[in-house]
């Protein structure tokens, strides 16, 4: 890191907040603003986006001027559990993609198994067993118990 950046975490947060503020402001531009007496749908969001941008700027300036505390290890991108983050997110997305066409059984099984892979202590037997238990459990609770309108096997797999 260069000498300008005293606290990488704060600089990153500040930039992120400003980016988000700009995004919300850009989205709110299309909305009718109205006037103070009868505020349109864009009025309050625009004020908030401005406030968010201002706060982001404060955080950014702080990150450039005030050194971070000593025990602060920085953002440490390399130490992020990328594999775990990716697999757990993938598991959830796969569930969302599969729930309609494949049904509850396969998508639940896949989601549980994929997220089990995220652990360094993964072993195939417990992974498969967890998936099976969760499929059985969610069938019993959500389909039988709560009567969710969901097939165990979706249309793609010969269900209804």
């Amino acid at each position: 890191m260069t000498r300008f950046v005293k606290s990488p975490k704060d600089v990153a947060s500040g930039l992120l907040l400003i980016l988000l503020a700009a995004f919300f402001a850009w989205q709110a531009l299309d909305l009718p603003m109205g006037r103070a007496i009868r505020m349109g749908p864009g009025y309050f969001p625009m004020i908030l986006a401005g406030l968010l941008g201002f706060l982001g700027l404060l955080v950014l300036i702080g990150g450039l001027t005030v050194p971070a505390a000593e025990e602060d290890a920085g953002i440490g991108f390399r130490r992020w559990p990328w594999q775990a983050l990716g697999l757990v997110t993938l598991a959830v997305v796969v569930f969302g993609l599969g729930i309609r066409p494949l049904g509850l059984g396969p998508s639940m099984g896949l989601a549980v198994f994929l997220s089990a892979l995220a652990s360094r202590r993964f072993n195939i037997v417990t992974g498969l067993a967890s998936a099976a238990i969760m499929v059985a459990f969610s069938w019993a609770v959500f389909i039988k118990g709560l009567g969710l309108p969901l097939p165990l096997l979706g249309p793609l797999l010969g269900g209804y």
Binding site: A91, F95, A111, V112, S115, A118, T126, M134
Partner: peptide, 12 residues
Amino acid sequence: HILFPLIVGFCC
């Protein structure tokens, strides 16, 4: 490592 995949499933 046994617990959290079940939580993910529950959340879904």
